[in-house]
Design a binder for these strands. Sequence first.
RNA 1: GCGCCUGUAGCUCAGCUGGAUAGAGCAACGGACUUCUAAUCCGUAGGCCGGGGGUUCGACUCCCUCCAGGCGCGCCA
Length: 554
Amino acid sequence: MKALIEQLILTAARKAHQSGALPSDDFPAVVVEEPKSDAHGDFATNFAMLSAKPQKMAPRKIAQILLDQMENNHDQVAKVEIAGPGFINFFLNPTAWPPVVRQVLEQDETYGHSQLGRGQKIQIEFVSANPTGPLHVGHGRGAAVGDSVFNILKACGYQVHKEYYINDSGRQIQTLGRSVLLRARQLLGEEIVFPEDCYPGDYVKPIAQQVIDTKGADFVRHEDDATITYCARAAAQTIIAGIRDDLERFGITFDEWFSEQSLYDSGRVEQALEDLKARQVVYAQDGAWWFRTTDYGDEKDRVVVRQNGQTTYFASDIAYHHNKFQRGFERVIDVWGADHHGYIPRMTAAVEAAGWRRDQFQVILVQLVALLRGGQPVAMGKRSGEFVTLRDVIDEVGRDAARFIFLTRDYESPLDFDLEVAKQQTNDNPVYYVQYVHARIASILRKAQEQGVKEVRWQAAAGARLTETEEINLIKALDRYPQVMESAAQTLAPHRITFYLMQLAGLFHAYYNKHRVLTEQSDLTQARLCLVAAVQKVIRNGLGILGVGAPEQM
RNA sequence: GCGCCUGUAGCUCAGCUGGAUAGAGCAACGGACUUCUAAUCCGUAGGCCGGGGGUUCGACUCCCUCCAGGCGCGCCA
């Protein structure tokens, strides 16, 4: 509907220019918005105001010229008027709205999809938690955001690939191996003071037991590199399997699990470093190799190969990101925890130094999550050895509530996740508010069937009976869904879908309480059944984007 | 000290990349179930958009500055 108004304005402007009424053909981008106040019509544009400068004319005068060109030859538009400093307000004919319902019903699960992305290849990487322990709530937020952004981009015609990067190399993993080894020896009765830098969590114990069971007690008595490496690999494997399991339970699967170690094994890290050397952006100093990231806006240069010859984490990350682009992705999106924001400049440098544009690399910085129970903070952190895992949260509050809550906030703002609130089935916890709409409509449809309604089919004549204010409001909201989706894709903002759904749900509940769908008049009943069926589809589609289920009953 | 994020109703947050009189939920108060699910709805009340400057027809939105909170500033990952 909005597109129609945009066309109307642009056409009028062109005609006005051709007839000489407007001197310039330097038109601003047509921006059509939906005014907050009904008094300002269904749609409004500031086109005339923005044209004031290029046309060297008063905004209201330009508006009048455009109006003259529009005539009133469009049956969807009832009235056009000039208001305030030069807004042009459009009032639509009430009959313009009902056909939207038909469109929703026809497009069904593809309603809201678009070709915005034109098949652009995007890689999105998220979670990528180190395999040194189970996932916590912070990872859950990143997972919910990443997966939802993936869904949005996919729906908007991008070719998206989602990936989990496994940090299965480096010192951290060795530390994990040592932790397992020491735990194993403790299990065998040895008195060992557990070192500060090792992982104290309970999840290490079963892994240690498993090593003892498969390799025997003698194996773990030797603390040599081979033994540690074995323990590390075994632990990482087990933990990754657990992570994968938790994510699946959270409704998330990846197209690819990408191993850091594989970058070393295939020589890609070395290759990436050679590339940087060839491009003369690395230099040797103090026995280490430095990447001149300051050339690309970083505040200091960064080490890629340490004095001791070992590469840094940054080095493999460079290799990984180069690899992403080499695989043909035109855009790369990383979802990181806010505590990693300091790495953006150097990663951007790495992308740019290798010849890609900096705007091809985007980082979604997800702010931290504070876990609460009844308003009181729950102790977190791996070092404390005891923490609430993502799995605990899913088990306690449910997958749908958890995912929805993670997306009820812009990811740029910090989130308090209160377990008590998440369990409550009140409006403090709007997931049920939205799901309830779906269930309610399902119930109406069941009831209709019981009453002998064979099918729900759109018919224009009957559709014209949708004239109640609440019905028009609902249809307008349905009409807006594709735009919300596109704006969510453009700004990578899944929470817009969440808020849209809450608003749509509110409109439906208001309608439901005021009007009956199943009436004595069969054509009116048909029209209303079509309307609510359309609402149900949009709710289902939207919840699907968020990774939340749409129940038939509650 | 420097960088990033945040600051909007008592609380939790939106505000559609600069639009008209700043919105929603919770909490408070008052109402609505013989009806398709009351996990719902209707109404009332609630504001110096952290402070101060600037940009312009117009600023919660953009720029500068100050204040407050969170996070980050390793040859760690």
